[in-house]
């Protein structure tokens, strides 16, 4: 009974500050494109150009891409979701530190800041889906009814990122090193996310096949589930549903725990 009341209190607190969340996202959005001539168009153009680069590089390498049907769309999905992950976690990591001016002077629920960065990254990601649609149109990829199922990996990925962003933002307050370490880690992770190759065609390291190792990477599952729905037009397998949902849940639980344990000390360190 008591915990229900507590949960209600948290919810009321969040609900009161929902407009702040909205305004912070719109501030980030305005500032990102202020003074650029093309403005929001960059949200579409940027992933398009990035994928063009990847596509040019990997199709010119023998053995890459040729065995994957509709390689541009395959590449694009991996690239977009991975960008979402790396943007939200790295921006979320610095969010508490950069909000120090606010946190020192007014009471605001502190998790608003990592959450805001994740929302902002999600908005950007959704905008860049326009680029994905363009690529699908140009390559003549059919539109499946299962597209709607792609919402599931996207939303669970959002929760997954939010959990990580909370944990990282709390840790970054005490140890700034994390920020440098994380950028190295995400780069490494990128190569294990099967963005521009099919894991089935990779060799093995020692007694482990690459496919097993990549299967341990939650991002691979989110990307694969998204591809399954959008590119292949198939239903999500039970494994996909479980792994996507499970990773999100674990991440957000751990993130909340770390954040809650340390948040009272934030103001003393930022």
């Amino acid at each position: 009974m008591k915990s229900v009341g507590k949960l209600k209190l948290y919810w009321a607190d969040f609900w009161r500050y929902r407009y702040l969340l909205w305004n912070l996202v719109s501030r980030d959005f305005k500032l990102k494109y202020r003074r650029s001539v093309l403005g929001v168009v960059w949200s579409v153009l940027n992933p398009l150009l990035m994928c063009l680069v990847y596509w040019a590089v990997f199709t010119s390498l023998p053995g890459f891409g040729s065995n994957i049907p509709n390689f541009p769309v395959y590449l694009m999905i991996g690239q977009l979701l991975f960008t979402f992950f790396s943007e939200s976690t790295s921006a979320g990591m610095g969010s508490v530190i950069s909000a120090s001016a606010l946190l020192k002077k007014v009471y605001i629920p502190k998790y608003i800041f990592p959450m805001e960065k994740c929302c902002f990254a999600l908005v950007n990601c959704v905008f860049s889906f326009i680029a994905l649609v363009l690529v699908m149109l140009v390559t003549g990829s059919p539109l499946h009814a299962t597209v709607i199922l792609a919402v599931y990996p996207l939303l669970t990925l959002f929760v997954f990122c939010f959990g990580i962003a909370m944990a990282l933002s709390a840790m970054a307050v005490f140890f700034r090193d994390i920020m440098h370490l994380w950028s190295v880690f995400t780069t490494a992770l990128m190569y294990f996310s099967a963005i521009f190759y099919d894991p089935a065609m990779m060799g093995s390291v020692g007694s482990f096949s690459m496919q097993t190792i990549i299967g341990l990477n939650p991002l691979y599952w989110y990307i694969t589930a998204f591809r399954t729905a959008v590119l292949y037009g198939r239903l999500l397998s039970t494994n996909m549903v479980l792994v996507c949902g499970g990773c999100a849940l674990v991440s957000v639980l751990i993130g909340t725990l770390i954040f809650k344990k340390t948040q009272d000390k934030f103001v003393l360190h930022i």
């Binding site: 500050y17 702040l20 909205w22 912070l24 501030r27």
Partner: peptide
């Protein structure tokens, strides 16, 4: 004005 107002918890 809108940003700071919401920081203080007012609605738009």
């Amino acid at each position: 004005i809108y940003l700071n107002g919401t920081v203080l918890g007012y609605s738009p």
